[in-house]
Amino acid sequence: MKPTGDDVAGLIARSTPEKRRRDAETLTALMQEVSGREPVVWGTIIGFGSCHYRYPTGTEGDTGLIGFAPRKAATTVYLLDGVDAHAAAIAKLGPHTAGAGCLYIKDLEEIDLDVLRGILERSLAWAESGGAEGMQIEVRS
């Protein structure tokens, strides 16, 4: 995946429902603060920083270090180190569902933002340290 050069504010403005726009603005500010990086659009994902990842299987690609997508059904928060790495914190997060590397949040106002901040900080630190067995990460910015 590559940055598209699209406008972050435009992507957020086009997000529906309105709750998704509100949550996207909050997450953009939170992730910018946590990462110290500007938001960049990667397709339909708003990412912060960039890296090249490689699995032992040979699968590789480029993505943001942390990021989210304001999808219609729920906001998707991407964690390179996966949700299992944050099981204890995620149990305290509030209403959500999860996939292998994603949190799906329907309403950010129902989530404990301090818990989410901690998850993002730990995931970012993991990525910036180069990942671990199972995934190698080369930080680009």
Rank of each mutant, 00 (worst) to 15 (best):
T28F: 11
M31R: 11
T57N: 09
L103Q: 11
I66H: 03
A13L: 07
I137Y: 04
D84R: 11
V83P: 09
P70Y: 00
Y53T: 05
L103P: 06
G101V: 14
R122D: 14
H86P: 02
T63W: 14
D62L: 13
W126N: 00
P3M: 03
G43S: 05
K19F: 07
R37A: 12
G67R: 05
M31P: 03
G118F: 04
V40M: 08
G64D: 01
D62F: 10
L65I: 14
A69K: 04
E138T: 14
D84H: 10
V41F: 01
L80N: 09
G99L: 12
G43V: 03
L30K: 08
I66Q: 04
E60Q: 14
A125Y: 06
L108F: 14
R140V: 03
H96E: 08
D84Y: 01
V139G: 04
C51N: 11
P39G: 01
E133H: 12
G47C: 07
G134I: 11
Q136K: 13
G61C: 13
G131L: 02
S50T: 05
T16S: 14
L113N: 02
I90S: 05
A9Q: 08
L93P: 00
I12R: 10
M1T: 11
P3Q: 03
A13C: 05
S50D: 14
L11W: 05
A88P: 04
D114E: 10
G5R: 05
E128I: 02
V83M: 09
A24H: 09
R117E: 12
L30S: 01
L120R: 14
R122N: 09
L27P: 07
L103A: 12
L79Y: 03
L93R: 01
L116R: 00
I137R: 05
L65H: 11
L79D: 01
S35Q: 12
A24S: 15
G49A: 03
R20Y: 11
W42S: 09
T26Q: 08
F48L: 10
G47Y: 10
A89M: 13
G64L: 01
A69R: 04
Y104I: 04
D112L: 11
R20G: 07
E18I: 08
H86D: 02
D81Q: 12
E109Q: 07
Y53K: 09
G43Q: 05
V34A: 15
T16Q: 15
L120A: 06
K72F: 08
L116N: 03
K19E: 14
A100V: 06
V139Y: 11
Y104M: 10
T97W: 05
G94L: 04
